[in-house]
Structure formats: structure tokens, C-alpha cells
């Protein structure tokens, strides 16, 4: 899969270096966590991996400091950031509220919210009606497929029990 790295100042891969710093922190956290393990079977593998990750990150950062090289593809992400954030919040909200509100309500609300976020054409009464009906049909259809045919215990919502 092609990645879309963002270049930093001075031709360095600033984003990559920041990510490496975060990875080093994660590796240190992992190493610290392994100190509580008593059995060597538990910590040998993760310690080795964490140490390797630190070495690779330091090597990458050192490489960038000594021989700066901007990433191959370097453009700011095109498109609307609020819509991106909205999508993630809608999905997270639906997941978080599912145990209380139930699958169907959360599904319909999330579907409607994401539909609004992904809409780039003008809303007409006809379009609104058709899209809303399709949205409800998709949510209810999947509910029946999973809950009734595949017997997945989808949350009903504690508020309604």
C-alpha cells in the first residue's frame, strides 16, 4: 500500500521522526511492563522486539539527522478535516453508546450522521427521503442478518430493558 508521508522543514522527514520518538516511548513502556513478569517465557520475546524497535527508530532518526532526505510523496492531506474528525467521532460514539441505547438506535444515528458527512450534493426532499429509507433498511437488514440468522447477540440497550 502506498503511503503518503508528509515532509518536514529542511527536507527532513519530520513526521517520521516524531513517529519514531513516539515508538521509542512505546517500546520503553513495553520494556517497563515486562519487568513485572516473572516467567522468562513471557518477557524474552517482547523485550527483544522492544529493543529492536528502539534500535530501528534511533537508526532512522540518526539517518535523517545526518543525511536529511524528505519522504517520497509529500503533500498535505487533501479534503476536509472536520469531516474526517466527524466520521471518527460518529463511529466511536455509536460504539460507546451501543450498550445503553442498543444496536438499532445507535446504528441508525451513526448511519445518518456519516451519511450527512459524506454528502457533497444538495439535499432535495426526494433525496432525503430515499437516502433515509435506504439507511434504515440497511441497518434493520443487517440487524436481522446478524441477530436472527447468524444469532449474534447484538446489544438491545440497557435503557430499554
Amino acid at each position: 500500500m502506498r503511503t503518503e508521508a508528509v515532509p518536514g522543514a529542511g527536507g527532513r522527514d519530520l513526521g517520521g521522526m516524531v513517529a519514531c520518538a513516539v515508538f521509542i516511548l512505546l517500546a520503553v513502556l513495553a520494556l517497563w511492563d515486562t519487568t513485572s513478569m516473572t516467567d522468562s517465557d513471557s518477557y524474552v520475546f517482547p523485550r527483544t522486539v522492544a529493543l529492536a524497535m528502539i534500535v530501528f527508530c534511533l537508526a532512522y532518526m540518526g539517518w535523517q539527522l545526518l543525511w536529511p532526505k524528505p519522504p517520497e510523496a509529500g503533500t498535505a492531506p487533501p479534503g476536509s478535516t472536520p469531516r474526517r474528525v466527524g466520521l471518527v467521532l460518529a463511529m466511536l460514539g455509536a460504539a460507546a453508546l451501543m450498550p445503553w441505547l442498543g444496536f438499532v438506535i445507535c446504528g441508525v444515528v451513526a448511519f445518518g450522521s456519516i451519511m450527512a458527512l459524506a454528502m457533497y450534493e444538495a439535499w432535495t426532499p426526494r433525496r432525503l427521503l430515499v437516502y433515509a429509507l435506504v439507511g434504515v433498511a440497511v441497518v434493520v437488514g443487517f440487524y436481522f442478518l446478524f441477530a436472527k440468522l447468524l444469532l449474534v447477540p447484538l446489544p438491545l440497550g440497557t435503557l430499554f430493558e
Binding site: 466520521l87 463511529m91 446504528g107 456519516i114 449474534v152
Partner: peptide, 30 residues
Amino acid sequence: KAMLVPTVAFMTLIGTYSIRNSVSDVIIMI
């Protein structure tokens, strides 16, 4: 697109939930 994105997003939610019947898995996935 206004139909595709919510449908796929919805499928990822229900598909992930159904693996272990876990809301936590959905949040980890996102």
C-alpha cells in the same frame, strides 16, 4: 458516496462486534 461510506462504516462496526460480541473490540478497531 453518501450511501457507500455509511454502509461500509456500519459494516465495520457490526462485523467487528460480531467476532467476539465485544464493544471494546469495536473501539480498539476504530
